[in-house]
Amino acid sequence: MLTPPITSRDHVTGNQQGSTEIVEYGDFQCPYCGEAFGVVRDMLQALSNIKFVFRHFPLAESHEYAMDAALAAEAAARQQQFWQMHDALYLHQQELSDALFPELAKQLQLNLEQFKEDMQDNLLVSKVEADFESGIRSGVNGTPTFFINGKRFNGDYRNLLSAVRH
């Protein structure tokens, strides 16, 4: 079961009042998450009743840029652009590098100085780590892992849409 349930600290998109709650634990450098990004985007376009949450699960030992990418998304969130950065990171997954983060911030017209400062903020590191720990508690065993209404979805993420429809 999802532990803790969705809180006000979470990043929500889709329908805030949606009757179906989906939480993804993801890693911006994980290729399967990159593939799942398209699946989620299509699902949110197809269905209007989805409340979608993203939590960080960076496999930092396997993926060099996973942690910094998560911090970039959180730093963007301080300027109300979490989802824009989330999308940009997945769309540029093949180009992940230290230089990419400020580049994307520039494209999103963020305050660059503030963004760079926030990326160094230990509070954001703690937030990402809290997401990771909640994933472990919830039984996340790899990325991406989805929860539908609090229950882990054990099927193939390519079938997420049909699983939600039923």
Partner: peptide, 15 residues
């Protein structure tokens, strides 16, 4: 890789 048990435990050693 991404769903590998040992890779996961590598991240959870601190816990």
């Amino acid at each position: 890789v991404c769903s590998d048990q040992m890779a996961l435990y590598n991240e959870t050693l601190r816990f």
